[in-house]
Write a protein that binds this DNA or RNA. Structure first.
Lengths: 207, 207
DNA sequence: AAAAAGAGAATGATCATTCACTCTTTGCGC
DNA sequence: GCGCAAAGAGTGAATGATCATTCTCTTTTT
């Protein structure tokens, strides 16, 4: 099931208007799927519930996606894009601690669209089993690390920076760890969080 | 299903010999279940495959556990104990980086018994859905943080340590992050890992 | 009217759990 | 020690529910 050759759900090239409909419907399905996946997990969520959430019939979903697995992959790619966007918004050191603190709570339980910590974790676990997911995640991770590394380089332009690679690694671990903590203690004391980040981040970005 | 009142699978008090058998069998089932859960995930693993792995009939499992969910909870408690043991073995700073580096690879794919990063992640994700799991994990997390905090206090005995709480938090994030990274890049360059840890850990434990 | 979009019941597979049954161990009067 | 009944351990097929996917039919658009 996972090793079949890639095959698009909708192949025929159609007029612009139809194209837009296809995009819209796919979007609607993915949005519903994300909600269901956050609530029940990738495997426990049923196609029927996704269909109900999207307010369409189960059969219709298969006009836009070939299988549930294809939807899962699409959701994962979405999550990765969200994650990268979150990282890409980093600009200077002072903001980082504050931004991570703010970000911590407001995307916890799936109330907001976008990144879901629970999905990121499930995705990582699933990567150890599904080679497709593993490939997607691995490719993403290496570019992300490069992003962080070059951001660190940019920060310390001019000064000699010894170990941006290992610092990028630590930073990546820290961000992942914050995602885990977000699922476990969604209502953590913000003061502690802010203090902790303000204590560690300068050490990683400055000297 | 998850809110039913606690009820032990085997209530009758029996002779010591029978007790031992019950323990042995439960152990056998849990060991098989862990293998299956690591391979397929909590929900995708079937009772049939667990039974096959444990070399017993599916029906027999229900003599020792009331439901699959009960097995999942037992596995999670096991993983938490493993995690705590891992943390409890910390003693001095120098060993920590080395120990984390060593630990990184050798419990990855479930070849070794004990802690499985994939399960820890799946467990955290599941905690956002199942209140029983959430409770178990939350209780565990707070004691773990205390453990780390008091370890930091012990390390810096005598010296004035300003913020052991926030440092314990960062350390916990870092450890969680390493677990995530373990699932995503099981074969990471050990040199990088060691360098990174040796750079960050002294900053967290010393001053 | 032809084509595309949609609905929703039918299909076949899978799965957790149970049940009726067999095999094994155990306690016990002799 | 010895046979024997009863309890415990174990089996694996049956059950009923659920689920992904498909198929046939209806509605809408072009």
């Amino acid at each position: 099931m996972q090793q079949t050759t890639e095959q698009e759900a909708i192949t025929r090239p159609v007029s612009g208007k139809a194209q837009i409909r296809v995009q819209t419907q796919r979007e609607r399905i993915l949005s519903a799927a994300q909600k269901c996946f956050i609530e029940d997990g990738f495997h426990a969520a049923s196609m029927a519930s996704i269909a109900a959430t999207a307010a369409m019939s189960p059969g219709l979903i298969y006009r836009y996606f070939n299988s549930k697995n294809e939807i899962i992959i699409a959701i994962i790619e979405r999550q990765l894009i969200c994650l990268r966007t979150e990282i890409a918004m980093l600009d200077d050191t002072v903001n980082l601690a504050e931004r991570l603190t703010t970000r911590y709570g407001n995307c916890g339980t799936g109330l907001t669209p976008g990144l879901s910590p629970a999905l990121v974790l499930e995705m990582s676990a699933e990567a150890t089993r599904d080679p497709d997911i593993a490939a997607a995640v691995a490719a993403f991770d290496s570019t992300l690390r490069t992003d962080i590394s070059s951001w660190l380089d940019r920060l310390n332009r001019g000064k000699i920076t010894t170990n941006t690679d290992s610092r990028a690694f630590i930073l990546q671990c820290l961000i992942d760890g914050l995602k885990v903590r977000q699922t476990r203690e969604p209502h953590i004391d913000r003061g502690l969080l802010r203090t902790a980040l303000n204590e560690i981040l300068p050490l990683l970005t400055r000297p």
